[in-house]
Amino acid sequence: MATISLGIRQAKPNVDGSFGVKIIIGSKGTTAYISTRFKVDNLSQWKGGKIVRHPDADVNNRKLRALLSEYEAILDSIPNPNVSAKDVKEYLERRFRKSDSLKAYAEAYITRLEKEGRKSYAQNMGYTLKYLIECFGESVILQEFTPSALTLFEKHLRKGGSSDTTINIRMSHLKALLNAAANDSIVEYKVFPFRNYKIPTKAVRDICISKEELHRLREAKFKGVSERRHTVARDLFMLSFYCAGINLTDLMDARLDGDTITFVRKKTATKKQGEKEVSITIQPEARAIIDKHLTKEGKLDFGYNYSQYEQFRSFVTKGL
C-alpha cells in the first residue's frame, strides 16, 4: 500500500541553500516526490515533519497539513494501490485540483496565445511560468496567489538578479494570467491579488534618435560580409518608420502593390473592440524601399528562405 508524508530532501538543497518541502510517496520499495511551494531556509527549521523556528511556521504547517489531507483523499481513490511510487505520483498530480493548477492553466493560456499568432508574447509568458514554478513549485494553485505571494515572487526574482524592468515584465505577465483565469471562471478572488500590489516601475531609457541620426541611418552604405544583413535591417527600419511604426510581422504579411497598406495588427487583434483594420497610405519614400523587394504577389521578399518568422526577426534584430 502506498504511503505519503511531508519531508525534505537533505541531499538536494535549492540553489540558494534552502530546502523545499515535498510530498514524499513510498510504494513497493520505491520513492517519488511532489514539490510544494513551501520551503525552509536551513535544516534546523525542519523537525518531525513540521516547520520549526520560522516566523510563519504555524501558518505554513496548517497549510501543509491541509495540502497533505487533499493528497491523502485522492490516494484513497486510487484503483490499484499496488504500483510504483512514480505511478502513484502521476495519479495524484493528474487529479489534484487540475483546473485550479497554475501550471496547467498557464500552459493552456500559452497555447491559446500561440494560436492567436502572439508567439513572441507566448514565449515570454513561458519564461515567466518557469520562474513561477521555480519559486512556488509545480503544485501551486491559482487560489494561493495573494499579495504576500506576489511579494515572495518579487523577492525571488530580485534574489536571482532581476532588475526592476525585468520584474515589471514578469509581474505584468502574472497579472494578465490571473486576470484571464478569473475571466475564464477558473478561479474566484474576493480581492484580486494585484489590487494593493504596486508593480515596480520600468527603468526609463532615452531611446529616441535625432533627425540627424535618422538621416545618417537612411543614407548609410555598408561593406563587407555584413552588407546584406545591415542593408535589409536598415530598409525594414526605415519602411516601418515611413509606415507609422508598423510591426515586422504585420509588414511581412501585408500586400504592398497598391497605394495603401491595410492590415489587422496581430498584437491587438484579440483585444481591440470595434474596427480593427488599420490603413496607411504608402508614401514615395516607402514606395522606393518596397519596390526593391516586392514580389509579383505583392509581398516583400528579402531573399531568405527562412521557414519560421522568428528566425527572420532574429536576423533583422541582429542586423539593427
Rank of each mutant, 00 (worst) to 15 (best):
A2H: 07
T3Q: 14
T3E: 13
I4A: 11
S5W: 06
N14H: 07
N14C: 11
S18Y: 01
G20E: 03
K22Y: 15
I23M: 09
I24H: 05
S35V: 00
T36Y: 10
V40G: 10
S44G: 05
G48D: 14
G49F: 05
K50A: 10
K50D: 12
K50T: 08
V52N: 06
R62D: 10
R62G: 04
L64G: 04
L67C: 01
L68E: 09
S69Q: 10
A73F: 07
A73C: 01
I74L: 15
L75R: 02
S77H: 03
P79K: 13
P79S: 12
P81T: 10
P81L: 09
N82F: 14
K89R: 15
Y91H: 13
Y91M: 02
F96D: 03
S99L: 04
D100I: 09
L102V: 15
A104C: 06
E107M: 10
R112N: 07
K115T: 06
E116Q: 12
G117V: 03
G117W: 04
S120N: 11
Y121D: 09
M125A: 11
G126D: 09
G126S: 06
K130H: 12
G137M: 10
S139P: 08
Q143G: 12
E144G: 14
F145D: 08
T151F: 00
F153M: 03
R158P: 02
K159E: 06
G161M: 08
S162Q: 06
D164R: 01
I169D: 04
I169E: 01
M171H: 06
H173I: 06
H173A: 13
L174G: 05
L177R: 02
L178I: 13
L178W: 13
A181R: 04
D184Y: 04
I186E: 15
Y189I: 06
V191F: 04
Y197G: 01
Y197S: 01
I199G: 05
I199L: 05
I199Q: 05
P200D: 00
R205S: 15
R205T: 15
D206W: 08
D206M: 12
C208F: 12
C208I: 08
I209C: 07
S210G: 09
K211D: 15
E213H: 08
R216G: 12
R218A: 15
E219H: 15
E219G: 07
E219W: 13
K223F: 04
S226N: 11
T231S: 03
A233E: 07
A233M: 06
D235L: 13
M238S: 05
F241Q: 02
Y242N: 02
C243D: 13
A244W: 09
A244L: 13
G245L: 08
I246C: 11
N247R: 14
L248Y: 13
T249C: 09
T260E: 00
T262H: 00
V264P: 00
T268G: 00
Q273V: 10
E277A: 11
E277T: 12
E277G: 02
V278E: 01
V278P: 00
V278L: 03
I280K: 02
A286F: 02
I290R: 02
D291A: 06
G303V: 05
G303C: 05
Q308E: 14
Y309L: 12
Q311F: 05
Q311D: 08
R313A: 14
F315C: 07
K318P: 04
G319M: 08
G319W: 15
